[in-house]
């Protein structure tokens, strides 16, 4: 028996162990290298993906937990109009340096705005609190999300 799920809009199946980490299989078997494996303990957020509409750490998901779910990684999200706004905003505010945390940050930002198109700074910081960045000091990323909220009004 295999594990069926939808990845970036396409129905797919995983034939390996239900105990494998989703972050590992997305990178290895499904060619999604934007899912970064940082800590494998749920503490850094670099492996963030959207599972059934909410942000999760893919390292904290066993393959069997993906059974029947819809998963979006940065590879799928980058095709959306929302991504274009976030891409622009992250660039304009200098919210990207080494880039390792960026896929997770973009997906976390998307989930913040999906839930709340006009977030306060506190709400943005809470929404990003599971995503570590060792370069920017966070303020640029918070500014990027606020800018994306403004520029993308009506999109979320």
């Amino acid at each position: 028996m295999s594990i069926p799920f939808t990845l970036n809009g396409k129905p797919t199946v995983y034939e390996g162990s239900a105990m494998d980490r989703l972050s590992d299989i997305l990178r290895r078997d499904f060619q999604c290298p934007g899912v970064k494996s940082g800590c494998n303990e749920g503490e850094c957020g670099a492996c963030s993906v959207i599972l059934d509409g909410v942000l999760v750490n893919a390292c904290m998901v066993a393959a069997g937990r993906a059974y029947g779910t819809e998963i979006v990684t940065i590879e799928g999200f980058r095709e959306t109009a929302q991504f274009a706004v976030l891409d622009q905003a992250f660039g304009e505010t200098g919210a990207v340096q080494c880039g390792f945390c960026t896929p997770g940050m973009i997906l976390a930002a998307a989930c913040i705005l999906q839930k709340n198109p006009d977030p306060t700074e506190t709400e943005i910081r809470d929404g990003l609190s599971g995503n570590m960045c060792r370069c920017t000091g966070y303020n640029a990323i918070v500014n990027a999300v606020a800018l994306a909220a403004k520029e993308g009004r009506g999109l979320w």
Binding site: S17, A18, M19, R21, N40, E41, G42, N57, C59, M60, V61, A62, G64, R65, Y67, G68
Partner: peptide, 22 residues
């Protein structure tokens, strides 16, 4: 296996999970 957020930290390769999310 509830949310897995504790199980996956001490992640092993043996055993079997009973996934409850469905």
């Amino acid at each position: 296996y509830g949310g897995g957020t504790d199980l996956m930290v001490a992640h092993g390769r043996s055993g079997q999970y009973l996934f409850l999310h469905r």
